[in-house]
């Protein structure tokens, strides 16, 4: 059952990102682990592409323990916005650390710096995990402004983006405004998979 679910998610992500510059994935918290697995398996299966994965949800160390293969995936660079703020000081070679998730301008700079060094012929993808968690650490208005900036910059450089948003009570107004900036929205529901 789990495999069917994850394969279904992978297929939906793959189909959506092939024809859209940016996709937003709106999901309930209960589906987060499955989506993460689907996303990482999909990313790992595309070694010819370049991926930047911004995590505001789980520290990189936790992700690397959960999905051992990501440490070996040289085409994925992680940007961890929460470890330092949580007092986790260990470093990994494929991960860039941001002092605090409030340092959004710094995050934007680091994302673009990774892509600057990439050969233009390779396809480039940015994953933001997640907009809803950025809103835990920042005011929704500033997250909206950040997301406008980053999507404008990535569009200009032909970088595809996948942004996750975990549905939370009271945040719908802000999340909807943000997530609809994307070309395509995937709403993950148990009943769909």
């Amino acid at each position: 059952m789990a495999n069917v679910l994850i394969d279904g998610l992978k297929e939906r992500i793959s189909n959506a990102i092939k024809i859209n510059q940016s996709i937003g994935i709106l999901l309930p918290g209960s589906n987060y682990s499955d989506l993460l697995q689907a996303l990482f398996e999909y990313m790992s299966s595309q070694p010819e592409d370049v991926w930047v994965y911004v995590t505001i949800t789980k520290p990189y160390e936790t992700l690397a323990k959960e999905f051992e293969f990501i440490e070996e995936s040289k085409h994925i660079t992680f940007i961890d916005c929460i470890s330092r703020a949580a007092g986790i000081t260990k470093t990994y070679p494929n991960c860039i650390y941001i002092e605090s998730p409030t340092m959004l301008e710094k995050l934007g700079l680091e994302v673009m710096n990774v892509f600057k060094e990439v050969n233009n012929e390779r396809r480039k993808y940015l994953v933001i995990d997640s907009l809803s968690n950025l809103m835990i650490y920042n005011d929704p208005d500033i997250v909206t402004e950040f997301f406008y900036h980053i999507t404008n910059r990535t569009r200009a450089r032909n970088i595809h983006t996948i942004s996750l948003a975990i549905e939370e009570e009271g945040m719908d107004k802000y999340l909807n405004r943000l997530i609809y900036l994307n070309d395509k929205i995937l709403k993950v529901r148990d009943s769909f998979i």
Binding site: E105, K106, I142, T144, F146
Partner: peptide, 20 residues
């Protein structure tokens, strides 16, 4: 906004201005 890093030294980016 200004960033100082060992890799790139000083870097500048537009400052996000939304109400704090």
């Amino acid at each position: 906004a200004m960033s100082i890093s060992s890799k790139n030294g000083i870097e500048l980016a537009p400052l996000l201005r939304s109400r704090e």
